[in-house]
Design a protein around this nucleic acid. Structure first.
Length: 417
RNA sequence: GCGUCGGUCGUAUAGUGGCAAUUACACCUGGCUGUAAACUAGGCGCCUUCGGGCUACGGGGGUUCGAGUCCCUCCCGACGCA
């Protein structure tokens, strides 16, 4: 009995897109679905009832953060992530692979998950020695076996191997977990991407082997928790395709049952590289397993991802943007603290059915931001999550009804105007 | 009336001869895509061909190459004594 089962209900004709369901031990996820990020076992500024009310189906937490604080043993003692945080639905954990990037090569350089178009020339020029000198001492040192993290909390050193990451994720106990990978900076030259990809593959295999052999009492953990392998390869077609093939073929016993339960697509991108990379990968990955595009969540990117065969996406955007004052609307994003909203008595997004829009005005939420009131971040997060979750739900419905292209066109026409 | 202290960018402050002038808050504008993030960057006298120019530390006058800083005087405020 596998930890999850994935079934496809309908495909989006002429594309890689599909509608399906993932059945987990904690409920069914109707895909495509937006995965809410709750890094430290909490969706920031929201309680679980609010997360549920917003329509979220699944929450993703982070191995690195929970390992440092409060410690994965405590979560295990509490009965696992879901119980610990009072989230009754499905859960996921990321492996810490992204922190290899965000606390490593990206640390202190203002490099994010997505590169600005203006950095493209630098990227093209990336030299074998690396394009940008260290602005701050890195908190991560990578070697063959794993990665040494220096805690961003207290500077203490911690060593993650693939086995360690999976062991921690087993203790945390999410329904779906990720292999330990290296998310590389797009600023790294090809030779480095090559090297890092080999490492990600070795680490993936080790994650898989550890996972498949791990027991909890007399039960196979692999029957309770699903493991997703991660495809990397940066912007390079050769590496992306190789990674998709290698990850898809990984198995502990030569059978498909000995392989991953699903796949993650990782990487930090120049935005214009993302679509091709996703397509290269999803043309190769087995159709009958769920695919999670890691860390993506702007509306236009979600359309791209859905059409190109991704089933799950997580993103900090809705909650982080919300807490920092920006809200999604059908006519684009608004930064509420801006002067123009102080006297704007419309809902955040007129016509939106979320709790925040049903009960509060832009002027009020702007006032809360100016007053540094906690409710500001809560209301904006509720709205943003509702907006993004619903957008993906609408895509799903549109595929089922056969109106996806029309729906996409109509949305983007207003949104990108 | 006398004495003391004080009047610096919206507010509160730093500054005791080289200053368009510190810091904080407020204000304005960016940024945020597997969360180092309820965060962060920049701006905040006027003009600019971005080199600089002009005007400014209560008002006026003076000393000085140079004054927010020193001197005189006036105005205003707080406190003390009458």
């Amino acid at each position: 009995m596998p930890a999850i089962t994935f079934t496809i209900q309908k495909k989006l004709e002429g594309t890689l897109g599909r509608v399906g369901e993932i059945e987990t031990k904690h409920g069914i996820i109707r895909t495509p679905a937006f995965v809410t990020v709750g890094t430290k076992a909490t969706v920031k500024a929201l309680n679980p009832e609010q997360v549920e009310a917003v329509g979220a189906q699944v929450v993703l937490s982070n191995t690195y953060h929970l390992y440092l604080q409060p410690g994965h043993e405590r979560i295990e003692k509490a009965g696992g992530l879901g119980k610990f945080m009072n989230w009754k639905g499905p859960t996921m954990t990321d492996s810490g692979g992204f922190q290899v990037f965000s606390l490593g090569s990206a640390y202190g350089k203002g490099i994010g998950k997505l590169l600005k178009p203006s950095t493209e020339p630098i990227l093209e020029a990336a030299s074998p020695s690396g394009a940008i000198e260290d602005a701050k001492p890195k908190l991560v040192e990578i070697d063959h076996d794993g990665a040494m993290f220096r805690s961003h909390l207290d500077g203490s050193a911690h060593y993650f191997t693939p086995e360690k990451s999976i062991e921690i994720q087993h203790a945390i106990g999410a329904d779906m977990i990720f292999a330990f990978d290296e998310c590389t900076s797009p600023m790294e030259p090809f030779a480095y991407q090559r090297q890092a990809l080999d490492r990600t593959h070795r680490w993936g295999k080790r994650s898989l082997e550890y996972h498949k052999s791990a027991m909890r009492g007399d039960k196979n953990i692999a029957d309770e928790q699903a493991l997703f392998g991660i495809v990397q390869g940066g912007r390079h077609e050769e590496l992306r395709k190789e990674s998709a093939r290698a990850t898809a073929a990984m198995t502990v016993d030569g059978t498909p049952e000995g392989g991953f339960d699903g796949y993650g697509i990782g990487g930090s991108f120049a935005k214009e590289d993302m679509e091709t990379a996703v397509r290269w990968v999803n043309e190769i990955l087995p159709e009958d397993k769920p695919r999670h595009l890691l860390g993506i969540g702007e509306p236009e990117d979600l359309f791209m991802a859905v059409e190109n065969g991704c089933d799950l996406f997580d993103c900090t955007g809705p909650t982080r943007l919300g807490r920092t004052g920006t809200v999604f609307t059908r006519k684009g994003k608004l930064h509420l603290p801006n002067k123009q909203f102080r006297d704007d008595y419309a809902p955040l997004d007129p016509g939106c059915a979320c709790y925040a829009c049903a009960n509060y005005t832009r002027a009020y939420v702007a006032h809360l931001f100016h007053g540094k009131e906690m409710l500001a971040g809560t209301l904006a997060s509720i709205h943003n999550l509702y907006f993004i979750v619903k957008l993906v739900d609408d895509m799903r419905a549109a595929i089922l009804e056969g109106t996806f292209n029309k729906m996409k066109e109509e949305f983007l026409k207003e949104y990108l105007k």
